[in-house]
Design a protein around this nucleic acid. Structure first.
Length: 476
DNA sequence: TGGGGTTAT
DNA sequence: ATAACCC
């Protein structure tokens, strides 16, 4: 099963093949160097610039959380319901034909014994989700969340450290943990293989820790970039892990039956590709880059065409605390202002609890609506504005009424979007608190106030913005 | 299609 | 403010 001539394109720049033994000698001699990467990660130089990335994907996460909350549900077919949808279900239910995002009626028809629990309140899922991320951060701080149930971790540095501890005689006894994609032969003289094997061992330790400390099972995929790690994590499904060695990367991506299955190519792009006659991964690989750039724009075109070759140089970006808090509710019909106001109050009350626990303060508030319409069902409209500073200061100060001024703001935003003198029909309301900033401890008027970089506005890229005199656009 | 999230334009 | 992406 040779993957003839398909070099992983990331290495196409002409990386020399280095024998693992030679590489280990350099490692032991402390010659590997390494330089700070995008996020202060040390990426190895010389032997290879290839990374070791793990994608961790929890099995039917909401259903697992529900079974932990109520162990009597274990062993029974279980679905988690939001409105009239079964958004996820456990494997007993899947065996009986229940699918994700299945209508409740269809699911009950397929599986009359299906037990349903309501999952519209995400609180416990969100809490468990962050426990998982925090657990993974103990292995390496570079953890990127994707939704509530997936995480990427860059293991490159950790793998390097473990290799430096390894003795030469332990190298020959090195084994993989879990599956090897495509049953590919492992070459212990290939330093890239060695590093991925160590990655697979760390992945196994992560899954063990998740199970022992949190009671959660999940899959993991280990590969040289996020795209491949994510694709390979789903190969053996539930509660198993798979490592992808570079020689099999082409068979992995060619195993996709349609470009839409590629993470990064969503509904819209897939439709536009289809209009160009592109449906398979091979179609996309071989399509004219120039024409693709003209059709999709240079940015999307170049990115997705690289993805089609299994190339993805995007870094694992540490997620850190959330950038925004939002709560939404969907319904069949909301057609009066009072009705809207009471729903908005409910959403805001939950949000204030969350933001209070977080400790940081939101400086922007947004209201989102979805209008009833037969066709364009997905489109939403929003209005946002700054939160007045006197309201921000009251946040988190217990009994002080912060609801009233914020509901007033939200209703102004509402009337800005919806002409309440005309009939209207909404199917969703959502409130979002964003532009979160840490409490500023520097006192106004002091040197510190003007010179300390505001932690809150320090962006992920590490750029620092210094506090300037505030513009007076409050109290709109 | 729910109830969330993110980044780019 | 919207549009795209992810789960």
């Amino acid at each position: 099963m040779e993957q003839l001539g398909v070099e992983p394109a990331e290495e196409a720049g002409g990386d020399e093949e280095e024998d693992a033994v030679q590489a280990m000698e350099r490692v032991e001699a402390g010659e590997t160097g390494g330089s700070p990467g995008v996020h202060g990660q040390v990426v190895p130089e010389g032997s290879s610039s290839s990374r070791v990335i793990v994608h961790v994907d929890l099995d039917c996460f909401y259903a697992q959380v529900e079974m932990i909350s109520n162990p009597e549900l274990k062993g029974k077919p279980l679905g988690v319901q939001q409105k009239y949808l079964v958004v996820t279900c456990n494997y007993e239910a899947r065996k009986l034909g229940v699918k994700k995002l299945m209508n409740v009626r269809d699911a009950k028809e397929k599986c009359p014994q299906l037990v349903l629990v309501n999952g519209e309140d995400l609180t416990r899922y969100r809490e468990m989700s962050y426990k998982v991320t925090e657990l993974l951060e103990e292995f390496s701080p570079v953890v990127e969340r994707l939704g509530f149930d997936e995480n990427f971790v860059d293991l490159t540095e950790m793998v390097e450290k473990r290799l430096q501890q390894l003795q030469s005689d332990e190298l020959s006894a090195l084994t993989v943990s879990g599956h090897v994609y495509n049953n590919q032969y492992i070459n212990l003289h290939d330093i890239v293989h060695i590093r991925l094997l160590v990655g697979s061992q760390i992945a196994a330790e992560m899954r063990e820790a998740m199970y022992n400390q949190l009671g959660l099972t999940g899959c993991a995929g280990v590969a040289s970039n996020k795209l491949l790690a994510k694709l390979v994590s789903g190969v053996f499904k539930p509660n198993q892990q798979t490592v992808l060695l570079p020689e099999s990367s082409q068979v992995l991506i060619q195993s996709l039956s349609h470009v839409k299955e590629m993470p990064g190519i969503g509904y819209k792009t897939a439709k536009r590709l289809e209009a160009l006659g592109i449906s398979s991964v091979l179609d996309l690989q071989t399509f004219s880059p120039k024409i693709l750039e003209k059709e999709l724009g240079i940015s999307v075109a170049q990115r997705i065409q690289k993805l089609s070759f299994g190339e993805d140089n995007s870094p694992v970006t540490p997620s850190g605390p959330p950038q925004s808090f939002s709560e939404e509710d969907s319904f069949k019909k909301c057609s009066s202002e009072v009705e809207a106001k009471s729903k908005i109050e409910e959403l805001l009350a939950s949000l204030l609890n969350r933001v209070c626990q977080d400790g940081r303060k939101p400086h922007t508030i947004r209201l989102i609506i979805r209008r009833y319409s037969s066709e364009n069902h997905c489109s939403r409209e929003s209005r946002q504005c700054p939160i007045p500073s006197h309201v921000i200061q009251k946040l988190g100060t217990g009994n002080c009424d912060v609801m009233t001024p914020m509901v007033d703001i939200l209703m102004k935003l509402f009337r800005n979007m919806v002409n309440v003198k005309m009939p209207f029909h909404l199917t969703l309301l959502s409130v979002c608190l964003c532009n979160l900033k840490a409490l500023n401890t520097a006192k106004k008027g002091t040197i510190d106030y003007y010179l300390t970089p505001s932690l809150s506005t320090t962006s992920r890229s590490g750029k620092r913005s210094f506090k300037m005199k505030d513009t007076h656009m409050e109290d709109f």
